[in-house]
């Protein structure tokens, strides 16, 4: 009995954590390449959920198509945001693009409120979960789906970054922009591409969470966005495996913490943030920058 409950909580934590991880990847990839916290990432996530919802409710598309459409929508939005709101400020003081990011975030929230209204929208019933029995443990089919998709996306991202030429260009640009240009890398394209991939992952998280909690609303990005950010900091901002691990740890911490103090569920993430900033500001897998000159 205890084991069954424990296992169910672990599954809840991993499911939630894998969506945090997907969101955290968007923050950490953008930070890695531009040293910018893209606060509009919450709204990129929300947009993914709405695009997915529209595909399912209006166009009656199956889940897989809705997921891809949500990712595509977020991807395009992310690239446009970078072009309009961040690129013109590339050489400005560090605070300027940060303020611009917050502005974009508020703008998109309100644009969504205008278009969709403040009430939450539900996904149709055929998307609800079935329970799968594995001997004496039960897993919801939806949880399994979210876990599998998240893991596949993260493996895909890892291969992209470590096995392809564009991935190599992304890493080079993140380490040293000027020298990357001397290699012939067009860094503006690489930066656009980074926003595209990070935003698509955020959009995927939006669709998955929308389906999981069976709702989408214009403010839905706020808490998951902040928690994704915490997960990125927890893992070490700019560090991709760190974002994945940070997301999972945060998801588990939240679910198990909620067992003892359910009313403080949302506070747990921020307690984690304070602790990590106090005791290990570089994050679990972050490194200090140390270079030979």
């Amino acid at each position: 009995m205890f084991f069954q409950q424990f296992f169910a909580q672990v599954m809840n934590g991993l499911t939630l954590g894998s969506t945090y991880a997907l969101i955290a990847l968007g923050y950490t990839m953008v930070y890695g390449i531009l040293e910018l916290i893209n606060f509009a990432h919450s709204e990129i996530y929300m947009t993914g959920a709405f695009v997915g919802l529209i595909m399912v409710t209006v166009y009656k598309l199956p889940f897989a198509a809705a997921l891809l459409a949500g990712m595509a929508g977020s991807c395009i939005l992310g690239v446009i945001i970078e072009k309009i709101a961040y690129r013109p400020l590339r050489k400005a003081t560090r605070i300027a693009p940060l303020i611009s990011a917050i502005g974009v975030s508020i703008f998109l929230q309100n644009a969504a409120l205008l278009v969709f209204g403040p009430q939450a929208r539900a996904f149709p019933a055929n998307f609800s979960a079935a329970a799968l029995n594995f001997g004496f443990v039960q897993i919801s089919s939806l949880q399994l789906l979210i876990l599998v998709i998240s893991v596949l996306l993260m493996i895909g991202l890892h291969l992209l970054i470590h096995r392809t030429k564009i991935g190599q260009a992304m890493r080079a640009t993140a380490q040293d922009k000027e020298t990357a240009q001397l290699m012939g890398i067009r860094i503006d394209r690489v930066i656009s591409f980074t926003f595209a991939i990070g935003s698509a992952l955020g959009g995927a998280a939006g669709v998955l969470v929308g389906v999981y909690f069976n709702s989408a609303d214009p403010m839905m990005g706020f808490f998951p966005g902040l928690k994704g950010f915490v997960a990125a900091v927890l893992g070490g901002i700019g560090n991709i495996p760190g974002a994945m691990v940070g997301g999972l740890i945060l998801g588990l911490a939240e679910v198990f913490g909620a067992v003892y103090m359910s009313q403080y569920k949302d506070a747990i993430a921020f307690a984690v943030l304070i602790l990590i900033l106090l005791f290990k500001p570089t994050g679990l897998m972050g490194r200090r920058i140390q270079e030979k000159v």
Binding site: K165, A169, R171, Q175, T179, M183, I185, E291, K292
Partner: peptide
């Protein structure tokens, strides 16, 4: 590129 291997550094030289 300090966090890449020697091989990757050389590959990046031939990026184009």
């Amino acid at each position: 590129f300090p966090r890449m291997s020697v091989l990757e550094n050389l590959q990046l030289g031939a990026y184009l």
